[in-house]
Design a protein around this nucleic acid. Structure first.
Lengths: 143, 143
DNA sequence: CCACTGTTTCCCACATTTCCCCACGCGGCC
DNA sequence: GGCCGCGTGGGGAAATGTGGGAAACAGTGG
C-alpha cells in the first residue's frame, strides 16, 4: 500500500498544471490518479488503487440509500481521472481550482493513502485550531 | 468495466445533437449506448454492456411483481438505442429533451457505470442540498 | 403508386483547447 | 566541479467541441 507523507509548496502555472512531488510519483504503483472534491476546503487525489474501494462504497451507498443519489452525483461530477505528464504534472480543471480557492500556489499534502491539495493560507487557518478533545484523543496513539 | 467521472457543459445544437466528452467515448468499449429516462430530473445514458444487467432486472421485476408492468413499460417506451456519429455526438429525441428540461445547454455527468444528462441549473439545485445524514455517512467513505 | 415534406445521417470545415515534447535553471550529491 | 534529479516554463501539433450543407430516409397525403 502506498503511504504519502510530507507537504510541498508548489507552483500552479498559467495552464493550471501542478507538479506532484517526486516522492509521491514514486509512491504510487500506477501513474493514474483520481482528483475529486470530497471536502469543501480542499481537493483530494487518490491513486487509482485507493480509489477502487471508494468507488465500490459509493455504489453501495447509492443502492442502499436512494436519498444519496444526488450526493454521489455531486462527487462523481467533480471527480476527474488524471494522468501525470512526462514531467509528473497533473492538470487541475478550472472548476476545481476555483472550488478549492487555488491561485498561483498550492500545498500538496501527503495524507497516508491519499494526497490533499490545499490553498496554503487556508491550510494554515484550518489546521491551526485543533479541537481540544480530538487532540487529547490523538495523543494516546503516540503513547 | 467502464467508469465515468467528471462533468462537462456541452452545447445542444439546433438539431438536438449533444457531443459526448471524448473521455466518455473512450471509456466505453463499444460505441453503442442506451438513452433512457429512469429518473424524473435527468436522462441516463448506459453503455451497452452496463445496460444488459439492467434489462435483466427489469424482466425479473416484471415477473415477480405484475403491478410493475406498467412502470417497466414506461421505461422501455422512453428508452432509445443510440450510436454516436463520427464526431461523437448523439441525437436526443425531442420527447426526452423536453422531459429533462433541456434547452441550449446540457451538463454531461459521469456517474460511475453510467452517464447522466442534466439541465445545468437543475443540477445545481438538486445537488446543492445534501441531506445531513447522507453527508455524514458519506464522509466515512473517504476517511 | 408517386410526389412531397420533414427528419435523420453522413460528411466537411473551423476555432479553440488540450496534450506532448523540448529546454532552462536551481540545488544536492557524488 | 560536473552530473543528475527536480520543479518550472513555453511552443507546436494533434484532438476536441461546434456549426452547417447535402444526401439518404421515412412517413403522409394525394
Amino acid at each position: 500500500m502506498s503511504s504519502f507523507l510530507g507537504s510541498y509548496r508548489h507552483q500552479l502555472d498559467g495552464k493550471g498544471r501542478l507538479s506532484l512531488p517526486a516522492d509521491f510519483r514514486r509512491g504510487s504503483d500506477a501513474d493514474v490518479f483520481v482528483l475529486v472534491q470530497v471536502q469543501d476546503d480542499a481537493l483530494t487525489l487518490f491513486p487509482e488503487d485507493a480509489w477502487g474501494p471508494v468507488q465500490e462504497e459509493l455504489r453501495e451507498l447509492q443502492q442502499r440509500n436512494p436519498e444519496a443519489r444526488h450526493y454521489v452525483l455531486s462527487i462523481t461530477a467533480s471527480a476527474r481521472r488524471v494522468v501525470p505528464d512526462s514531467q509528473g504534472r497533473i492538470l487541475i480543471p478550472e472548476q476545481l481550482r476555483d472550488a478549492a480557492g487555488l491561485d498561483g500556489e498550492a500545498l500538496v499534502v501527503g495524507a497516508l493513502n491519499k494526497i490533499e491539495i490545499w490553498d496554503p493560507e487556508r491550510f494554515q487557518q484550518r489546521t491551526g485550531d485543533r479541537g481540544e478533545e480530538v487532540a487529547e484523543l490523538a495523543q494516546r496513539i503516540f503513547a
